[in-house]
């Protein structure tokens, strides 16, 4: 009896560990916090990108590639951060369409992330960066229009 309790306990711990190794947050609140923080990083990257694209900041190849890498890694991580129970709460402005149209939501992130990752190596100057960055930045609004709600 005692053994089986210990075994069950061990399995639960192992299960939780395996889940966190795959990167699924332990609670809905943790998921909301992580996705909010990732999107805030995406916003910071976008500021860097826009400022370079508009020549309000000097073009820096490493910084430009970092913008694209930030997008790519966000796109990989974000779809895991909308578990059941995280529809509302905290600072979220997630729209119900994320859960009602999960496939569409995940496809948008996959396409956007692939475009960002695929552009990293080819971005060698400002013009090439602009060509890659423009459509990716436009993707913010088109995706937020469908999968995000307005908020104050």
């Amino acid at each position: 009896m005692k053994k089986s309790v210990i075994l069950a306990g061990t399995l639960m711990v192992l299960g939780a560990f395996a889940a966190s190794a795959q990167g699924v947050p332990a609670t809905p609140a943790a998921a909301i916090e992580e996705r909010t923080s990732i999107m805030s990083g995406v916003g910071d990257a976008t500021r860097t990108g826009v400022r370079m694209a508009r020549e309000q900041a000097p073009f820096d190849l490493d910084a430009a590639r970092d913008v694209l890498r930030t997008y790519a890694s966000a796109a990989e991580r974000m779809p895991l951060l909308f578990p059941p129970g995280s529809e509302t709460g905290g600072d979220t402005s997630a729209a119900p369409t994320i859960w009602s149209d999960r496939a569409g939501f995940e496809r948008r992130f996959a396409d956007w992330g692939a475009a960002a990752a695929g552009a990293v190596d080819g971005v060698s100057d400002l013009d090439k960066f602009r060509a890659a960055f423009g459509p990716l930045a436009d993707g913010c609004s088109s995706c937020h229009g469908e999968y995000r709600v307005r908020r104050n």
């Binding site: 976008t46 826009v50 913010c140 609004s141 937020h144 999968y147 307005r150």
Partner: peptide, 13 residues
């Protein structure tokens, strides 16, 4: 984009 480079969502898009 807002000044924080947040991209407005929902019907505002």
């Amino acid at each position: 984009f807002t000044p924080d480079f947040d991209s407005v969502g929902g019907s505002m898009a």
